[in-house]
Every structure is written in C-alpha cells, then in structure tokens.
Design a protein around this nucleic acid. Sequence first.
DNA 1: CCGAAATAGTGTTTTTATATTACAATGCCC
DNA 2: GGGCATTGTAATATAAAAACACTATTTCGG
Lengths: 152, 152
Amino acid sequence: MADDTKKTDPSVDFGILNSLMGYRLRRAQMNFFSKFSDLCSDLGISPGLFAIIAIVERNPGLTQTAVAQALGNDRSAMVAAVDKLEQMDIIERRPAKNDRRSYALFMTKHGQTFFKTLSTRVMEHEQSMAARLKDDKELDWLLKTLDILSKN
Amino acid sequence: MADDTKKTDPSVDFGILNSLMGYRLRRAQMNFFSKFSDLCSDLGISPGLFAIIAIVERNPGLTQTAVAQALGNDRSAMVAAVDKLEQMDIIERRPAKNDRRSYALFMTKHGQTFFKTLSTRVMEHEQSMAARLKDDKELDWLLKTLDILSKN
DNA sequence: CCGAAATAGTGTTTTTATATTACAATGCCC
DNA sequence: GGGCATTGTAATATAAAAACACTATTTCGG
C-alpha cells in the first residue's frame, strides 16, 4: 500500500454500529490515543502518565490514592506509574505530614519544565483536532456532552 | 462504602485535562465499555466481539481480513475471536468459493436470534444514554462529530 | 486506652488487548 | 513457470487493567 491511510472499505455496511455512541467513541478515542503515542512516546509518556502529571501539577501534595480516585484508576496501578515518573525525575514522593502510611506527590523542578513542553505538544495536537469542528462553541458543546456521558 | 458512586473528589483541579477532548473521550468510552460489560458479559460477549458479529450479520460472506480491516483490527486478532464465536455457534467459517486461502464468515441460525437479543440489550443501553442528550438532533450531531474525530 | 475495622502503599498474579513476527498454502501477474 | 503479495495461523511479546493478599498505619467505638 502506497500511503498509510487505512481506508475503511466503503462497501462494508456497519449496520447498527453506525448508530452506537459506544462504537463511535471507541473509534475516536483510539485515534486520539495513537496520535498521542506518536507525539509523546519519544518522551516516554503515555496518556495515562500524562493525566497523572497533570493532576499532580495542579494539586501538589495529593496522595497516590487521591490521584487514582480522581482519574478513576485502581490505586495498585499507581505504584508502577509513580515509580516510573520518579525515575524520570518528573514527580517525587515525600512522606505525608499527618499520615505515615502515605506519600504526598510533588513535581520536581525538572518536572515543571518537562510538563510545559509536554502540554505544549498535547495542546497543539488538541487544537489541530479541534480545527475540524465548526467553532469554539461546538468544542464546548462536545466537551460538555462527553462529560455528561462519562457519569454512570 | 455504602453506594457504588465513585464520586470524583470535587476538590481536585483537573487543569488542562478538562479542556482535552482526548481525556473526555477516554472517560466517556470507559463508561460505555464498563456498562456494556455489565450488560453482556453473562452472554460472553465483549464490545469487540459484538462489533464483529454486527459486521458479519450485515455483510455475510466477508473474509476474516475484510472484517478486521473494517474494524481497524489486525487480522491476526481475528483468529481467536472467530474461534470463540464459532464455538459459541454464532458465526461459522465456510471455505471461500474463489479463494482457497480464505474463509467466508456467515451467521448461524442460532447466531441470528442471538444477535437479535444482543442488539436489543445494547440498543436499550444506548437509548438510556441518549436520553441524557437534548434531542435526536444532538445525538446525530454527536455521532457525526465523533466520526470526524475518528479519521486520521 | 484497647481492640476492631478501615485505609495507604505495595507486591503478586491474572486477565485482557494488542502488536509483532514467522510460516505454509494459495493466488496473481508478467 | 517464477517471483511476489495475501490469507489464515501460530507463537510471542507487550502492555494495560483488575483482583487479591499483605504490612504498616490510622481511626473510631466503647
């Protein structure tokens, strides 16, 4: 194949799938996911890690489980993630003041600047995708609608 | 915890994540995925398997790779999936007429009725989610927008 | 204060999904 | 007929997600 456009065979009838939000969400999310990977894998950052960094950056001092709850992850998944981010000198664990069981998470100096370059990249991609929409009003509508559909 | 509402801690600032379509898509899709599982796991059907069935039902005689391409999967992933669906007596492989390398996929008798009950369940869930939207126009708009964001 | 129950972090394991690669059989093109 | 692409398959690898148990702590009722 000459180009990399995996053209979905136009002769295939998707039937019920075409009317399913669930299926369309999956396709759209997969597209964002793979573009994110193309964009940030050289920095060793996956979408999940990016989310953790974004939360810690805005909420310094949160414990691991607090971050996990905010993102809807299991707290056991945090261990490996935070281990990696600590190795990369992006965030650091400090013993929590009032609770000797838990760590508080903070950005390192390097993490701060790292997050800036990272979010610049991500926002560029976001904006190139948002350019497919009509206007900012439509973007707001989409974000709000997705939020409504996220709640269970 | 008394109820199962994993309330996202309201005091957490999601910062940039709030404005990212990618993140919102992920949350919404996760919600659909888990609901689908709750709804159909007793029948042994995952969202991916459902998509395969839906394609075969509307396009009898497609080859495995054709289905894989339509869904954006790798054809190697089809093998286990079709194996399972054949064991469940939902679809069947028949030797393709003009190409002895490939199989053509068809619904079995049982698969036909099975798909009906399955899609009834799925549509019920879909409609309960769609009820969160303003009207059908908004639903159409959402589907169209997600489609636009799915193309790379 | 004591003891039961809950919670934080961690390690371990399992499951699931997805990607990669290799290969035999077959088809297609010149 | 010979070279090359394609189909289904197998065997891995990889990765992400979930389940479970364990230790050290905290919390709370009495």
